[in-house]
Design a protein around this nucleic acid. Sequence first.
RNA 1: CGGGGCGUAGCGCAGCCUGGCUAGCGCGCUUGCUUGGGGUGCAAGAGGUCGUGGGUUCAAAUCCCGCCGUCCCGACCA
Length: 490
Amino acid sequence: MAEKITPRDKDFSQWYQDVVLQARLADYSPVKGCMVIRPNGYSIWEQIHQDLDRRIKATGAKNAYFPLFIPESFLKKEAEHVEGFAPQCAVVTYAGAKDLEEKLVVRPTSETIINSMFAKWIQSYRDLPMMINQWANVVRWEMRTRLFLRTTEFLWQEGHTCHATAEEAEEEARKMLHVYTDFAEEVLAMPVVPGLKSESEKFAGALRTYCIEAMMQDKKALQAGTSHNLSTNFAQAFDTVFLDKDGQQKVVHQTSWGVSTRLIGGMIMTHSDDRGLVLPPRLASTHVAIVPILSNANKRNEVLAAARALAKAIQETSLHSQLPYQVGVLVDEDDTKQPGWKFHEYELIGVPIRIELGPRDLENGQVVMTRRDWARKESVALAGAPQKVVNELAAMQKDLLERARAFRDQNTFEIEDYADFRKRIEEPGGFFVAAWCQSKDCEAKVKEETKATIRCLPIGTDYRPIPAVGRCLACEGSGSLVRAIFARSY
RNA sequence: CGGGGCGUAGCGCAGCCUGGCUAGCGCGCUUGCUUGGGGUGCAAGAGGUCGUGGGUUCAAAUCCCGCCGUCCCGACCA
Protein backbone atom coordinates (compact mmCIF):
# COMPACT_ATOMS: atom_id res chain seq x y z
CA MET A 1 0.00 0.00 0.00
CA ALA A 2 2.57 2.55 1.12
CA GLU A 3 5.24 3.31 -1.44
CA LYS A 4 8.76 4.25 -0.50
CA ILE A 5 9.25 7.87 0.40
CA THR A 6 11.27 10.05 -1.91
CA PRO A 7 14.58 10.95 -0.29
CA ARG A 8 14.62 14.44 1.06
CA ASP A 9 17.95 15.46 -0.41
CA LYS A 10 16.42 15.43 -3.87
CA ASP A 11 13.66 17.95 -3.47
CA PHE A 12 12.25 19.15 -0.20
CA SER A 13 9.02 20.23 -1.79
CA GLN A 14 8.46 16.81 -3.30
CA TRP A 15 9.45 15.14 -0.06
CA TYR A 16 6.90 17.21 1.81
CA GLN A 17 4.15 16.36 -0.61
CA ASP A 18 5.02 12.67 -0.36
CA VAL A 19 4.78 12.74 3.42
CA VAL A 20 1.37 14.39 3.23
CA LEU A 21 0.04 12.01 0.60
CA GLN A 22 1.58 8.80 1.87
CA ALA A 23 0.66 9.39 5.49
CA ARG A 24 -2.83 9.91 4.05
CA LEU A 25 -3.29 13.32 5.59
CA ALA A 26 -4.79 15.05 2.56
CA ASP A 27 -5.42 15.00 -1.19
CA TYR A 28 -6.13 17.64 -3.76
CA SER A 29 -9.78 17.85 -4.77
CA PRO A 30 -11.14 18.14 -8.31
CA VAL A 31 -11.30 21.91 -7.78
CA LYS A 32 -7.85 23.33 -8.33
CA GLY A 33 -6.01 24.28 -5.18
CA CYS A 34 -8.67 22.94 -2.84
CA MET A 35 -7.67 20.29 -0.34
CA VAL A 36 -9.48 17.23 0.93
CA ILE A 37 -8.40 16.62 4.50
CA ARG A 38 -8.44 12.91 5.23
CA PRO A 39 -9.28 11.44 8.65
CA ASN A 40 -5.56 11.11 9.52
CA GLY A 41 -5.07 14.81 8.85
CA TYR A 42 -8.31 15.97 10.35
CA SER A 43 -7.62 14.31 13.68
CA ILE A 44 -4.54 16.50 13.93
CA TRP A 45 -6.68 19.56 13.28
CA GLU A 46 -9.10 18.40 15.96
CA GLN A 47 -6.27 18.31 18.49
CA ILE A 48 -5.19 21.79 17.45
CA HIS A 49 -8.73 23.07 17.58
CA GLN A 50 -9.42 21.61 20.99
CA ASP A 51 -6.24 22.84 22.65
CA LEU A 52 -6.15 26.29 21.08
CA ASP A 53 -9.86 26.86 21.64
CA ARG A 54 -9.32 26.37 25.36
CA ARG A 55 -6.50 28.90 25.36
CA ILE A 56 -8.54 31.44 23.41
CA LYS A 57 -11.52 31.12 25.72
CA ALA A 58 -9.20 31.61 28.67
CA THR A 59 -8.48 35.11 27.36
CA GLY A 60 -12.18 35.93 27.58
CA ALA A 61 -13.08 35.63 23.91
CA LYS A 62 -16.34 33.93 23.03
CA ASN A 63 -17.02 31.76 20.02
CA ALA A 64 -19.57 32.81 17.41
CA TYR A 65 -20.20 32.28 13.74
CA PHE A 66 -20.64 34.72 10.86
CA PRO A 67 -21.78 34.10 7.28
CA LEU A 68 -19.65 32.78 4.48
CA PHE A 69 -20.93 35.45 2.06
CA ILE A 70 -19.95 39.07 2.40
CA PRO A 71 -21.69 41.80 0.38
CA GLU A 72 -19.11 43.29 -1.94
CA SER A 73 -19.82 46.76 -0.61
CA PHE A 74 -18.66 45.74 2.87
CA LEU A 75 -15.25 44.76 1.62
CA LYS A 76 -14.88 48.08 -0.19
CA LYS A 77 -15.40 50.19 2.89
CA GLU A 78 -11.81 50.00 4.07
CA ALA A 79 -9.54 51.16 1.27
CA GLU A 80 -6.31 49.31 2.09
CA HIS A 81 -8.22 46.18 2.98
CA VAL A 82 -10.03 45.89 -0.34
CA GLU A 83 -6.87 46.71 -2.24
CA GLY A 84 -5.02 43.93 -0.45
CA PHE A 85 -7.71 41.28 -0.83
CA ALA A 86 -9.63 42.05 -4.01
CA PRO A 87 -7.17 40.25 -6.32
CA GLN A 88 -7.63 36.97 -4.48
CA CYS A 89 -11.36 36.99 -3.82
CA ALA A 90 -13.88 34.50 -5.19
CA VAL A 91 -17.13 36.29 -5.96
CA VAL A 92 -20.64 34.95 -6.48
CA THR A 93 -22.39 36.90 -9.23
CA TYR A 94 -25.20 34.52 -10.10
CA ALA A 95 -27.53 32.59 -7.81
CA GLY A 96 -31.14 31.49 -7.68
CA ALA A 97 -31.16 31.38 -11.47
CA LYS A 98 -30.49 35.09 -11.91
CA ASP A 99 -27.75 37.68 -11.70
CA LEU A 100 -27.34 39.10 -8.22
CA GLU A 101 -28.07 42.76 -7.60
CA GLU A 102 -25.07 42.93 -5.32
CA LYS A 103 -22.19 40.51 -5.72
CA LEU A 104 -21.26 38.30 -2.77
CA VAL A 105 -17.65 37.78 -1.83
CA VAL A 106 -16.75 34.40 -0.37
CA ARG A 107 -14.97 35.54 2.79
CA PRO A 108 -11.19 35.76 2.57
CA THR A 109 -11.33 36.98 6.21
CA SER A 110 -14.20 38.35 8.23
CA GLU A 111 -13.24 41.80 9.52
CA THR A 112 -15.86 43.54 7.44
CA ILE A 113 -18.87 41.35 8.08
CA ILE A 114 -18.08 41.12 11.78
CA ASN A 115 -17.71 44.89 12.00
CA SER A 116 -21.11 45.32 10.42
CA MET A 117 -22.49 43.51 13.48
CA PHE A 118 -20.15 45.10 16.01
CA ALA A 119 -21.56 48.46 14.93
CA LYS A 120 -25.04 47.27 15.95
CA TRP A 121 -24.06 45.44 19.11
CA ILE A 122 -21.86 48.08 20.68
CA GLN A 123 -23.51 51.10 22.26
CA SER A 124 -21.60 52.02 25.38
CA TYR A 125 -18.31 51.45 27.16
CA ARG A 126 -20.20 48.82 29.17
CA ASP A 127 -20.28 46.65 26.05
CA LEU A 128 -16.49 46.67 25.88
CA PRO A 129 -14.25 44.90 25.49
CA MET A 130 -16.07 42.72 22.99
CA MET A 131 -14.05 39.68 22.02
CA ILE A 132 -15.31 37.28 19.39
CA ASN A 133 -13.65 34.22 17.90
CA GLN A 134 -14.84 32.01 15.10
CA TRP A 135 -13.67 28.70 13.70
CA ALA A 136 -14.41 28.79 10.01
CA ASN A 137 -13.31 28.20 6.47
CA VAL A 138 -12.08 31.01 4.22
CA VAL A 139 -11.28 31.20 0.53
CA ARG A 140 -8.33 32.96 -1.10
CA TRP A 141 -7.73 32.40 -4.78
CA GLU A 142 -3.95 32.11 -4.73
CA MET A 143 -2.08 31.55 -7.95
CA ARG A 144 0.00 28.80 -6.48
CA THR A 145 -1.09 26.31 -3.88
CA ARG A 146 0.57 23.75 -1.63
CA LEU A 147 -1.12 21.15 0.56
CA PHE A 148 -1.79 22.66 4.01
CA LEU A 149 0.60 25.59 3.47
CA ARG A 150 -1.44 27.58 1.00
CA THR A 151 -4.70 26.12 -0.24
CA THR A 152 -7.56 27.87 -1.98
CA GLU A 153 -9.92 27.06 0.86
CA PHE A 154 -8.59 26.58 4.36
CA LEU A 155 -9.76 26.14 7.92
CA TRP A 156 -8.77 28.62 10.56
CA GLN A 157 -9.67 30.44 13.69
CA GLU A 158 -10.08 34.21 13.52
CA GLY A 159 -10.50 36.41 16.56
CA HIS A 160 -11.93 39.93 16.40
CA THR A 161 -11.96 42.27 19.35
CA CYS A 162 -13.11 45.79 20.21
CA HIS A 163 -11.67 47.94 22.97
CA ALA A 164 -12.28 51.35 24.46
CA THR A 165 -8.71 52.56 24.15
CA ALA A 166 -5.70 52.20 21.90
CA GLU A 167 -3.70 50.86 24.83
CA GLU A 168 -6.14 48.04 25.48
CA ALA A 169 -6.18 47.04 21.83
CA GLU A 170 -2.42 46.99 21.69
CA GLU A 171 -2.32 44.90 24.84
CA GLU A 172 -4.78 42.42 23.32
CA ALA A 173 -2.73 42.07 20.13
CA ARG A 174 0.36 41.38 22.21
CA LYS A 175 -1.46 38.93 24.46
CA MET A 176 -2.55 36.86 21.47
CA LEU A 177 0.99 36.85 20.14
CA HIS A 178 1.92 35.12 23.38
CA VAL A 179 -0.95 32.67 23.13
CA TYR A 180 0.22 31.66 19.65
CA THR A 181 3.87 31.49 20.64
CA ASP A 182 3.13 29.24 23.60
CA PHE A 183 0.76 27.10 21.61
CA ALA A 184 3.20 26.58 18.74
CA GLU A 185 6.01 25.59 21.07
CA GLU A 186 4.09 23.57 23.67
CA VAL A 187 1.72 21.70 21.39
CA LEU A 188 3.28 21.64 17.92
CA ALA A 189 6.81 21.51 19.38
CA MET A 190 7.59 24.12 16.73
CA PRO A 191 9.90 26.88 17.89
CA VAL A 192 8.93 30.34 16.64
CA VAL A 193 10.32 33.84 16.57
CA PRO A 194 7.72 36.38 17.68
CA GLY A 195 8.09 39.75 16.03
CA LEU A 196 6.62 42.59 14.03
CA LYS A 197 5.91 42.62 10.32
CA SER A 198 7.42 45.40 8.24
CA GLU A 199 5.07 47.96 6.71
CA SER A 200 5.01 46.20 3.38
CA GLU A 201 4.34 42.77 4.89
CA LYS A 202 1.64 43.73 7.37
CA PHE A 203 -2.08 42.92 7.08
CA ALA A 204 -4.07 45.07 4.66
CA GLY A 205 -5.91 47.47 6.94
CA ALA A 206 -3.84 47.05 10.10
CA LEU A 207 -1.86 49.60 12.06
CA ARG A 208 0.69 46.93 12.88
CA THR A 209 0.99 43.18 12.58
CA TYR A 210 2.67 40.87 15.07
CA CYS A 211 3.58 37.42 13.83
CA ILE A 212 5.34 34.21 14.71
CA GLU A 213 7.87 32.85 12.22
CA ALA A 214 9.19 29.29 12.15
CA MET A 215 12.09 27.68 10.32
CA MET A 216 11.42 24.58 8.25
CA GLN A 217 13.96 21.78 7.69
CA ASP A 218 15.00 23.28 4.36
CA LYS A 219 15.77 26.48 6.29
CA LYS A 220 12.99 28.45 4.69
CA ALA A 221 10.69 30.52 6.90
CA LEU A 222 7.01 29.94 7.50
CA GLN A 223 4.62 32.52 8.89
CA ALA A 224 2.72 30.49 11.43
CA GLY A 225 0.31 33.01 12.91
CA THR A 226 -0.55 36.71 13.04
CA SER A 227 -2.05 39.15 15.50
CA HIS A 228 -3.03 42.58 14.21
CA ASN A 229 -3.63 45.88 15.90
CA LEU A 230 -6.27 47.34 13.56
CA SER A 231 -6.44 50.65 15.38
CA THR A 232 -9.69 52.37 14.34
CA ASN A 233 -9.36 51.66 10.63
CA PHE A 234 -12.31 49.31 10.32
CA ALA A 235 -14.30 50.91 13.11
CA GLN A 236 -14.25 54.23 11.29
CA ALA A 237 -15.29 52.61 8.05
CA PHE A 238 -18.20 50.80 9.75
CA ASP A 239 -19.01 53.47 12.29
CA THR A 240 -18.39 51.15 15.22
CA VAL A 241 -18.72 53.73 17.98
CA PHE A 242 -19.61 53.76 21.67
CA LEU A 243 -20.57 56.30 24.30
CA ASP A 244 -17.74 56.54 26.80
CA LYS A 245 -17.88 57.28 30.52
CA ASP A 246 -17.16 60.94 29.80
CA GLY A 247 -20.24 61.23 27.59
CA GLN A 248 -18.22 61.38 24.37
CA GLN A 249 -18.91 59.27 21.28
CA LYS A 250 -15.70 57.39 20.51
CA VAL A 251 -14.57 54.94 17.87
CA VAL A 252 -13.53 51.51 19.14
CA HIS A 253 -9.98 50.21 18.82
CA GLN A 254 -9.76 46.75 17.35
CA THR A 255 -7.59 43.71 16.89
CA SER A 256 -7.82 40.56 14.84
CA TRP A 257 -5.73 37.41 15.00
CA GLY A 258 -5.68 33.99 13.44
CA VAL A 259 -3.95 30.69 12.75
CA SER A 260 -4.88 28.12 10.17
CA THR A 261 -4.47 24.56 8.92
CA ARG A 262 -1.10 25.85 7.71
CA LEU A 263 0.10 24.92 11.20
CA ILE A 264 -0.22 21.27 10.19
CA GLY A 265 2.08 21.86 7.22
CA GLY A 266 4.54 23.70 9.44
CA MET A 267 4.53 20.88 11.97
CA ILE A 268 5.23 18.33 9.23
CA MET A 269 8.06 20.35 7.71
CA THR A 270 9.56 20.86 11.17
CA HIS A 271 9.65 17.29 12.45
CA SER A 272 9.07 14.67 9.79
CA ASP A 273 11.79 12.56 8.21
CA ASP A 274 12.38 10.24 5.28
CA ARG A 275 10.39 7.47 6.91
CA GLY A 276 7.28 9.61 7.10
CA LEU A 277 5.35 11.72 9.55
CA VAL A 278 6.70 12.48 13.01
CA LEU A 279 3.85 13.58 15.22
CA PRO A 280 4.43 15.39 18.52
CA PRO A 281 2.52 13.31 21.12
CA ARG A 282 0.17 16.18 21.91
CA LEU A 283 -1.11 16.13 18.33
CA ALA A 284 -1.51 12.36 18.06
CA SER A 285 -4.79 10.58 18.63
CA THR A 286 -3.10 7.17 18.73
CA HIS A 287 -0.01 7.50 20.90
CA VAL A 288 0.97 3.87 21.24
CA ALA A 289 0.70 1.05 18.73
CA ILE A 290 1.16 -2.41 20.19
CA VAL A 291 2.12 -5.03 17.62
CA PRO A 292 1.60 -8.54 18.97
CA ILE A 293 3.82 -11.11 17.29
CA LEU A 294 1.54 -14.02 16.51
CA SER A 295 4.04 -16.40 14.96
CA ASN A 296 3.46 -19.22 17.35
CA ALA A 297 -0.09 -20.62 17.10
CA ASN A 298 0.08 -22.18 20.57
CA LYS A 299 1.04 -18.92 22.17
CA ARG A 300 -1.32 -16.80 20.11
CA ASN A 301 -4.02 -16.35 22.74
CA GLU A 302 -1.50 -15.78 25.48
CA VAL A 303 0.26 -13.06 23.46
CA LEU A 304 -3.00 -11.36 22.55
CA ALA A 305 -4.18 -11.37 26.14
CA ALA A 306 -0.89 -9.86 27.29
CA ALA A 307 -1.10 -7.16 24.60
CA ARG A 308 -4.63 -6.22 25.58
CA ALA A 309 -3.73 -6.16 29.26
CA LEU A 310 -0.76 -3.93 28.52
CA ALA A 311 -2.96 -1.53 26.55
CA LYS A 312 -5.30 -1.27 29.49
CA ALA A 313 -2.46 -0.78 31.94
CA ILE A 314 -0.99 2.02 29.83
CA GLN A 315 -4.30 3.83 29.71
CA GLU A 316 -4.78 3.50 33.42
CA THR A 317 -1.30 4.69 34.24
CA SER A 318 -1.73 7.68 31.95
CA LEU A 319 -4.90 8.71 33.78
CA HIS A 320 -2.85 9.26 36.92
CA SER A 321 0.01 10.95 35.08
CA GLN A 322 0.77 14.59 34.38
CA LEU A 323 0.14 14.16 30.68
CA PRO A 324 -2.32 16.82 29.46
CA TYR A 325 -4.09 14.36 27.20
CA GLN A 326 -5.56 10.89 27.27
CA VAL A 327 -3.22 8.31 25.84
CA GLY A 328 -4.65 6.45 22.86
CA VAL A 329 -3.48 2.85 22.59
CA LEU A 330 -4.01 0.59 19.62
CA VAL A 331 -3.53 -3.19 19.67
CA ASP A 332 -3.00 -4.28 16.09
CA GLU A 333 -4.54 -7.73 15.94
CA ASP A 334 -4.78 -7.81 12.15
CA ASP A 335 -3.11 -11.02 11.03
CA THR A 336 -3.41 -10.40 7.32
CA LYS A 337 -0.39 -8.07 7.73
CA GLN A 338 3.11 -9.05 8.78
CA PRO A 339 4.83 -7.39 11.74
CA GLY A 340 7.39 -5.76 9.43
CA TRP A 341 4.62 -4.25 7.38
CA LYS A 342 3.01 -2.85 10.49
CA PHE A 343 6.27 -1.31 11.72
CA HIS A 344 6.64 0.64 8.50
CA GLU A 345 3.01 1.67 8.52
CA TYR A 346 3.10 3.15 12.03
CA GLU A 347 6.29 5.00 11.22
CA LEU A 348 4.69 6.40 8.08
CA ILE A 349 1.70 7.82 9.94
CA GLY A 350 3.78 9.05 12.87
CA VAL A 351 2.54 7.05 15.87
CA PRO A 352 4.86 8.29 18.68
CA ILE A 353 5.54 4.96 20.41
CA ARG A 354 5.51 1.41 19.10
CA ILE A 355 5.64 -1.70 21.25
CA GLU A 356 6.42 -5.21 20.03
CA LEU A 357 5.17 -8.04 22.16
CA GLY A 358 5.79 -11.69 21.23
CA PRO A 359 6.31 -15.14 22.75
CA ARG A 360 10.00 -14.43 23.36
CA ASP A 361 9.09 -11.31 25.33
CA LEU A 362 6.53 -13.13 27.40
CA GLU A 363 9.16 -15.63 28.48
CA ASN A 364 11.48 -12.82 29.50
CA GLY A 365 8.80 -10.66 31.07
CA GLN A 366 9.59 -7.72 28.79
CA VAL A 367 8.47 -5.81 25.71
CA VAL A 368 10.38 -4.14 22.90
CA MET A 369 9.71 -0.41 22.68
CA THR A 370 10.75 2.28 20.25
CA ARG A 371 10.02 5.96 19.86
CA ARG A 372 9.23 7.43 16.43
CA ASP A 373 12.13 9.87 16.75
CA TRP A 374 14.60 7.17 17.79
CA ALA A 375 16.70 5.00 15.54
CA ARG A 376 16.91 2.23 18.14
CA LYS A 377 14.73 -0.25 20.02
CA GLU A 378 14.77 -0.82 23.77
CA SER A 379 13.81 -3.81 25.87
CA VAL A 380 11.63 -2.77 28.77
CA ALA A 381 10.34 -4.83 31.69
CA LEU A 382 6.67 -5.57 31.10
CA ALA A 383 5.70 -4.39 34.57
CA GLY A 384 7.39 -1.04 34.09
CA ALA A 385 6.24 -0.48 30.53
CA PRO A 386 3.17 1.68 31.25
CA GLN A 387 5.19 4.17 33.28
CA LYS A 388 7.93 4.10 30.67
CA VAL A 389 5.40 4.99 27.98
CA VAL A 390 4.13 7.95 29.95
CA ASN A 391 7.68 9.16 30.58
CA GLU A 392 8.73 8.80 26.97
CA LEU A 393 5.68 10.61 25.63
CA ALA A 394 6.49 13.57 27.81
CA ALA A 395 10.16 13.39 26.88
CA MET A 396 9.45 13.13 23.18
CA GLN A 397 7.30 16.26 23.21
CA LYS A 398 10.18 18.11 24.85
CA ASP A 399 12.92 16.60 22.69
CA LEU A 400 11.18 17.47 19.43
CA LEU A 401 10.97 21.12 20.43
CA GLU A 402 14.56 21.24 21.58
CA ARG A 403 15.86 19.51 18.48
CA ALA A 404 13.97 21.90 16.23
CA ARG A 405 15.16 24.89 18.23
CA ALA A 406 18.77 23.75 18.04
CA PHE A 407 18.41 23.33 14.29
CA ARG A 408 17.00 26.81 13.92
CA ASP A 409 19.67 28.38 16.09
CA GLN A 410 22.43 26.60 14.18
CA ASN A 411 21.05 28.08 10.99
CA THR A 412 20.53 31.61 12.21
CA PHE A 413 23.36 34.02 11.48
CA GLU A 414 24.24 37.59 12.25
CA ILE A 415 25.34 39.30 9.08
CA GLU A 416 26.58 42.74 8.06
CA ASP A 417 28.08 42.48 4.61
CA TYR A 418 25.61 42.45 1.74
CA ALA A 419 27.83 40.56 -0.71
CA ASP A 420 28.40 37.91 1.94
CA PHE A 421 24.67 37.78 2.58
CA ARG A 422 23.89 37.25 -1.11
CA LYS A 423 26.23 34.32 -1.18
CA ARG A 424 25.06 32.69 2.03
CA ILE A 425 21.33 33.07 1.41
CA GLU A 426 21.90 30.67 -1.49
CA GLU A 427 24.13 28.32 0.43
CA PRO A 428 23.70 27.26 3.18
CA GLY A 429 20.56 29.41 3.64
CA GLY A 430 18.81 30.09 6.92
CA PHE A 431 17.73 33.10 8.97
CA PHE A 432 19.97 36.15 8.64
CA VAL A 433 19.78 38.77 11.32
CA ALA A 434 20.89 42.14 10.01
CA ALA A 435 20.50 45.84 10.60
CA TRP A 436 17.85 47.55 8.49
CA CYS A 437 17.25 51.27 8.05
CA GLN A 438 13.47 50.72 7.84
CA SER A 439 13.23 52.05 4.30
CA LYS A 440 10.86 50.35 1.88
CA ASP A 441 13.42 50.68 -0.89
CA CYS A 442 16.06 48.68 0.94
CA GLU A 443 13.55 45.97 1.75
CA ALA A 444 12.42 45.83 -1.88
CA LYS A 445 15.97 45.77 -3.16
CA VAL A 446 16.87 42.77 -1.02
CA LYS A 447 13.73 40.94 -2.10
CA GLU A 448 14.38 41.71 -5.75
CA GLU A 449 17.99 40.63 -5.68
CA THR A 450 17.88 37.65 -3.32
CA LYS A 451 14.22 36.54 -3.02
CA ALA A 452 14.67 36.95 0.74
CA THR A 453 12.12 39.01 2.62
CA ILE A 454 12.02 40.52 6.07
CA ARG A 455 10.25 37.78 7.97
CA CYS A 456 9.91 39.85 11.07
CA LEU A 457 11.52 42.45 13.27
CA PRO A 458 12.28 40.65 16.53
CA ILE A 459 10.91 42.60 19.47
CA GLY A 460 12.28 43.50 22.90
CA THR A 461 10.43 43.49 26.18
CA ASP A 462 8.78 46.75 25.12
CA TYR A 463 7.42 45.03 22.00
CA ARG A 464 9.27 47.43 19.76
CA PRO A 465 11.84 46.46 17.16
CA ILE A 466 15.29 46.11 18.65
CA PRO A 467 17.62 48.98 17.72
CA ALA A 468 20.74 47.93 15.86
CA VAL A 469 24.18 49.42 15.46
CA GLY A 470 26.37 49.51 12.37
CA ARG A 471 25.00 49.86 8.85
CA CYS A 472 21.89 48.88 6.95
CA LEU A 473 22.37 45.57 5.15
CA ALA A 474 21.19 47.02 1.85
CA CYS A 475 22.09 50.73 1.70
CA GLU A 476 24.85 50.85 4.31
CA GLY A 477 23.18 53.87 5.85
CA SER A 478 23.44 54.24 9.61
CA GLY A 479 20.15 55.99 10.50
CA SER A 480 17.28 54.51 12.59
CA LEU A 481 18.52 50.96 12.39
CA VAL A 482 16.58 47.97 13.70
CA ARG A 483 17.32 44.28 13.76
CA ALA A 484 15.50 42.33 11.05
CA ILE A 485 15.36 38.65 10.11
CA PHE A 486 15.88 38.11 6.40
CA ALA A 487 15.00 34.74 4.91
CA ARG A 488 13.37 33.01 2.02
CA SER A 489 9.91 31.87 2.88
CA TYR A 490 6.89 29.80 1.95
C1' C B 1 0.06 34.43 -17.29
C1' G B 2 5.38 32.89 -18.64
C1' G B 3 9.42 28.54 -18.62
C1' G B 4 9.94 23.24 -18.26
C1' G B 5 8.30 18.12 -17.48
C1' C B 6 4.66 14.36 -17.67
C1' G B 7 -0.05 11.75 -19.47
C1' U B 8 0.62 3.72 -21.34
C1' A B 9 -3.65 -1.51 -15.86
C1' G B 10 -5.64 0.87 -9.08
C1' C B 11 -0.35 3.12 -8.12
C1' G B 12 4.78 3.79 -10.04
C1' C B 13 7.12 3.29 -14.67
C1' A B 14 9.74 1.08 -19.47
C1' G B 15 8.79 1.12 -24.66
C1' C B 16 8.83 6.55 -28.47
C1' C B 17 14.78 8.93 -30.57
C1' U B 18 15.32 4.90 -35.33
C1' G B 19 6.93 3.44 -36.96
C1' G B 20 5.93 -3.09 -37.92
C1' C B 21 5.49 -9.46 -34.40
C1' U B 22 0.22 -11.08 -29.19
C1' A B 23 2.05 -3.64 -25.58
C1' G B 24 5.74 -5.00 -21.21
C1' C B 25 7.80 -4.59 -15.98
C1' G B 26 7.48 -3.63 -10.51
C1' C B 27 3.98 -2.83 -6.60
C1' G B 28 -0.99 -3.61 -5.40
C1' C B 29 -5.49 -6.88 -6.25
C1' U B 30 -7.88 -12.34 -6.52
C1' U B 31 -7.15 -17.79 -5.23
C1' G B 32 -4.20 -21.55 -2.82
C1' C B 33 -0.21 -23.07 0.06
C1' U B 34 3.68 -20.94 2.92
C1' U B 35 5.56 -17.30 6.22
C1' G B 36 5.09 -14.11 10.54
C1' G B 37 10.71 -10.34 15.87
C1' G B 38 11.71 -4.81 9.75
C1' G B 39 7.19 -4.28 3.97
C1' U B 40 7.53 -13.32 3.82
C1' G B 41 8.17 -16.87 -0.27
C1' C B 42 6.17 -19.80 -4.29
C1' A B 43 2.45 -20.83 -7.94
C1' A B 44 -1.78 -19.72 -10.79
C1' G B 45 -5.05 -15.63 -12.27
C1' A B 46 -7.94 -10.87 -13.21
C1' G B 47 -6.99 -6.11 -15.02
C1' G B 48 -5.11 -1.58 -20.73
C1' U B 49 -10.26 2.67 -26.15
C1' C B 50 -1.49 3.78 -24.76
C1' G B 51 -5.28 11.58 -22.24
C1' U B 52 -8.13 13.49 -26.57
C1' G B 53 -9.20 15.22 -31.78
C1' G B 54 -7.10 15.42 -36.41
C1' G B 55 -2.94 14.54 -39.99
C1' U B 56 1.20 11.61 -42.43
C1' U B 57 1.71 6.25 -43.68
C1' C B 58 0.37 -0.10 -46.40
C1' A B 59 0.99 0.27 -40.95
C1' A B 60 1.10 4.98 -35.24
C1' A B 61 1.83 4.16 -27.97
C1' U B 62 5.99 5.68 -31.34
C1' C B 63 6.33 10.99 -36.35
C1' C B 64 3.50 16.09 -37.12
C1' C B 65 -0.42 19.75 -35.54
C1' G B 66 -4.39 21.28 -32.23
C1' C B 67 -6.88 20.63 -27.61
C1' C B 68 -7.48 18.83 -22.54
C1' G B 69 -5.47 17.38 -17.90
C1' U B 70 -1.60 17.36 -14.38
C1' C B 71 3.06 18.39 -11.78
C1' C B 72 7.49 21.42 -10.94
C1' C B 73 9.86 26.45 -11.30
C1' G B 74 8.61 31.74 -11.56
C1' A B 75 5.11 35.83 -11.10
C1' C B 76 1.29 36.16 -6.66
C1' C B 77 0.84 35.06 -1.37
C1' A B 78 -3.20 39.98 5.05
